[in-house]
Design a protein around this nucleic acid. Structure first.
Length: 183
DNA sequence: TGCACGATGAAC
DNA sequence: TTCATCGTGCAC
């Protein structure tokens, strides 16, 4: 298992979203490493992407999206669920990749097929927003054996308000994987 | 200071 | 299809 370097995140957001498929998300709590294989992601392309939180400008909540790549952006939706993103591209670009589903690998309890469910199973909350993904307790790693994956593209979920941006194919999932989210 | 609205999930 | 539930952002 090899932790991904800053350079992995400092690239085109769509490339990062595709390349994250098959990688392992790791969160160490009290010495126990919870691990899930990323099987579904969504790309949010920056301030001009009307579906992205950063399109509303730099605010206390979204500030981490405007910061350097390789950090976690975690936010609360619907007043009760946490969702985790990985910040991509150069500082100031305000883009990120939403992690939408995991295939359980190690020490995960409950379902992981959905952005809020995976945060619950991984023990990820807003306290981790802004956390460096090159840290020892929260990071993404390439598994020892990483078989090639076929990728399915589709429209992003829950962003109908974003006009033409809602129709772009910025959701990526591993074809045939049993742990992708709804649809 | 108030208020409309979610990058969801579960129940009905 | 409906609803739980509250931080965020923007209008007063």
């Amino acid at each position: 298992m090899k932790k991904l370097a800053r350079a992995f995140y400092d690239r085109d957001t769509i490339e990062v979203a595709r390349d994250l498929l098959g990688k392992h998300l790791v969160h160490v709590i009290d010495g126990v490493a919870r691990v899930g294989r990323i099987v579904e992601t969504e790309a949010y392309l920056g301030e001009h992407d009307r579906a992205a939180h950063s399109s509303k400008g730099c605010t206390p909540r979204t500030r981490v999206m405007f910061g350097p790549p390789g950090h976690a952006y975690v936010y609360l939706v619907y007043g009760m669920h946490w969702c985790m993103n990985v910040v991509t591209e150069r500082e100031g670009h305000a883009s990120a990749v939403l992690l939408r589903a995991l295939e359980p690998v190690q020490y995960l309890e409950g379902r992981t097929q959905g952005p809020a469910l995976l945060c619950k199973a991984m023990g990820i909350t807003g306290a981790l927003s802004g956390h460096d993904l090159l840290s020892q307790d929260l990071f993404v790693a390439a598994p020892a054996v990483e078989p090639p994956v076929a990728i399915v593209k589709s429209a992003r979920i829950g962003v109908d308000y974003a006009g033409s941006w809602a129709r772009r194919l910025l959701r990526f999932q591993i074809r045939g994987n049993a742990y992708v989210s709804r649809l």
